[in-house]
């Protein structure tokens, strides 16, 4: 499938996964890949402080809206922007819009904000999603990529629309919940991408989350992103001493052992990872996008470009019928 089609106009991609699997890296790589394909993207973060701007070489940590990558250059790349919508800010803004602007400070200091959020659970989430829908409707970018809250929160977060429609039967919140649910259930306009590492526990949790999301939210699931795969090198099966001899190279004392040990470690992990990827395919009939482990502890612009290119290769290989519209 052509990346330009995948990052189609006004599409919303929701990236979800448990903490530590690289949700934010995947969000950034998707946006960068969209830019490379000439599609502008808007990243929406909901948890405040994150390392996302750093991945684009941008030092700023807190921000409202930020251009992470300028488009329109000779390379044909499109723009990447990012903004944060925190749940509390969304709730305050909403209440202010509904005749409570004079007392918005008191909302926080009196604890009334907590009371509202407890009286109508999910109200913060629905307001964040409502804002996202607004952005999508106003065509803020070709594609909107939402870095969803971590772990089990993702299910609660996406289920908020349905829950609130039951709890609050009339009024503006009910209307907003309906509106959001309509977006989530529109499989052409909205997809959830679940992220995992090729390890036992994250894979189990991803499979569980996938089924919960389909059953409880009715949301369309896009390809699963498997992050952190060790790339294989063809020569790793060769003992170092023999490989050195073949290449007519002499090794220092202890060097053969170090090379062998490192090769064995990598091959062992590659085999474990392959088992987990197979298990994931068996348990979850969704296409997969894979991202390599970069042997870095930090993702900067160069690393992000590599990941984005891997993402594009994966998207090219996707079967159109599997990922678009009613076929999913």
């Amino acid at each position: 499938m052509k990346p330009t089609e995948y990052f189609a106009a006004s599409r919303l991609l929701i990236v979800a996964g448990k903490g530590g699997v690289g949700k934010t890296v995947v969000t950034a790589a998707l946006a960068r890949a969209a830019a490379m394909a000439g599609r502008s993207s808007l990243i929406v973060e909901v948890e405040g402080k994150s390392g996302l701007p750093l991945m684009f070489g941008h030092p700023e940590l807190g921000y409202d809206e930020l251009v992470l990558h300028k488009g329109g250059g000779t390379d044909g790349h499109a723009e990447v922007t990012a903004r944060t919508i925190t749940p509390d800010a969304a709730l305050i803004e909403y209440l202010e819009d509904h005749g409570l602007s004079r007392i918005s400070k008191r909302l926080v200091s009196s604890g009334a904000l907590d009371i509202v959020a407890t009286a109508a659970p999910g109200i913060r989430d629905i307001l964040v999603l409502g804002k996202v829908k607004q952005l999508q409707r106003s065509a803020a970018a070709d594609v909107i990529i939402l870095d969803a809250p971590a772990a089990g929160h993702a299910i609660t977060f996406l289920r908020s629309a349905r829950g609130l429609m039951d709890a609050v039967k009339v009024g503006p919140i009910n209307t907003q919940a309906k509106d959001v649910l309509e977006l989530l259930e529109d499989h052409d306009a909205c997809q959830v991408l679940l992220v995992t590492l090729p390890e036992e526990t994250p894979v189990n949790e991803l499979v569980e989350t996938a089924f919960s999301l389909e059953d409880q939210v009715g949301v369309g699931l896009g390809p699963v992103v498997v992050n952190g795969l060790y790339e294989d090198y063809p020569g790793l099966g060769e003992p170092a001493a023999k490989a050195a001899e073949d290449a007519d190279v002499s090794l220092l004392a202890g060097e053969a052992e170090a090379l062998d040990e490192a090769a064995e470690f990598r091959r062992h992990r590659i085999a474990l990872q392959a088992d987990q990827v197979d298990r994931l395919s068996e348990q979850l009939p969704l296409p997969q996008l894979t991202m390599p482990f970069l042997f870095q502890s930090e993702i900067g612009p160069d690393e992000l470009d590599r990941l984005a290119r891997a993402m594009l290769v994966g998207i090219e290989a996707l079967d159109v019928d599997l990922t678009l519209g009613e076929g999913s």
Partner: peptide, 22 residues
């Protein structure tokens, strides 16, 4: 040593040296 098995073995060793030092 690119293109030979020993090159791959060194590349792998360098990967771990790099990530570990970072």
């Amino acid at each position: 040593l690119d293109g030979q098995a020993i090159g791959d073995l060194y590349r792998n060793l360098a990967d771990f040296q790099l990530v570990s030092s970072r």
